[in-house]
Design a protein around this nucleic acid. Structure first.
Lengths: 197, 197
DNA sequence: CGACTGACAAAGTTTGAAATCTGTCAGCTG
DNA sequence: CAGCTGACAGATTTCAAACTTTGTCAGTCG
């Protein structure tokens, strides 16, 4: 039986790593800092994560998973698909833009981290596109939308709204017109989804 | 009458500055280097441009103007507006993506420069949006499109295609699917432009 | 007299020696 | 004997001193 209060789990390491990244920023946070926060030698951290990059990737994955949690389409199934789509896009934009506005340091940290964790980000993007595909497929079932295949349509909607949620565009979110610009794009997209060519 | 071969014009300074930026990169190019290339003291350069930032902005403006030249909508007025729109978007993407692919160093220089020249970039973006507005307005005249106001529609189309032409997304252009992704987005957009709500 | 120079202060950048960090592993310890 | 430590080599980062750059301006030159 292992002494419960002292056992070194991946989870406890991730908590500490997240904390250290928050406090020192991605440029200065070291594995030694993480070990110090846990009261162990840095060698112990390497028993659980093979490299510093793997540790950072794991932190990024957890962050992105937590961000994407409120975006499960099953959480909001009321009303026309066009409006569910708008609410979903606005929720995504609000999550990212809120983070960028309320805590720019943390957002920068998070941006740095994800910029390097390409695989992890690809999984996140796939996840978001799948959520859009689900909403669009519901719209097709109800006769609201008329796309031949909801999968590329979901990806296209995500790509077309990149400006409103992709962290690269954070500097543009200061413009107060950003909200109405998202609605303009949404309007074109839902007309496009509904049209029968 | 001034001695023609030796006169120091803004234009000659811009030529030299562009050359120096190309050769040394934006981080290392100095005003002293520009002056040296012209065989004058750096003080003379400051008689024509008040600061280094103003000089760099002027170089960026000239670059962007040159880039945008082949995108005048009056140069391609054949066929349905939907297809003119696709050709225009593909031309814009090809210009930016071609530069990024053929001469990544120069593209990075150009990206750095424009990232700092916010005003200059805003003018360039307005110019591009106006070109799209013109194509959409033509489509409305011909009965192909049905948007109430082509001005926000032009901006929305530019925003919706940011992923395919905005330099921030350059890293994503390596994916060979990028071309078909642009077509997917275009398809939704032109159906949206044509739809009568 | 107007265009240019070059010396200058303040700000910013380079440089290389010292300090720190990453990733490994032989050995300690409960 | 599983889990941890701490010393180590090589890579990377820090820091302060030396050097370079920016922007100004009194003075030179034609």
């Amino acid at each position: 039986m292992t002494p419960v209060a002292v056992v070194l789990t991946e989870e406890r390491i991730l908590d500490a790593a997240e904390d250290v990244l928050r406090r020192f920023g991605p440029a200065k946070a070291t594995v030694v800092d993480v070990a110090k926060a846990l009261g162990v030698s840095h060698g112990s951290v390497y028993r659980h994560f093979p490299t510093k990059v793997a540790l950072r990737d794991a932190v990024a994955r957890r962050w992105l998973d937590r961000l994407a949690e409120p975006l499960d389409p099953a959480r909001d199934t009321d009303g026309p698909a066009a409006e569910r789509l708008l609410r979903w896009l606005e929720r995504l934009a609000a999550i990212k833009q809120g983070l960028a506005l309320n805590d720019p340091e943390l957002f920068a940290t998070f941006g740095q981290l994800t910029a390097e964790a390409r695989e992890v980000v690809a999984a996140h993007v796939d996840h978001l596109a799948a959520a859009l595909t689900e909403i669009i497929a519901d719209g097709v079932s109800s006769g609201e939308f008329a796309v031949p295949d909801p999968v590329p349509a979901g990806r296209a909607v995500l790509h077309a709204t990149a400006r409103f949620h992709h962290p690269l565009h954070a500097a543009e979110w200061a413009d107060p017109a950003i909200g109405s610009e998202l609605r303009e794009v949404w309007r074109l997209l839902v007309w496009g989804l509904a049209a029968r060519p």
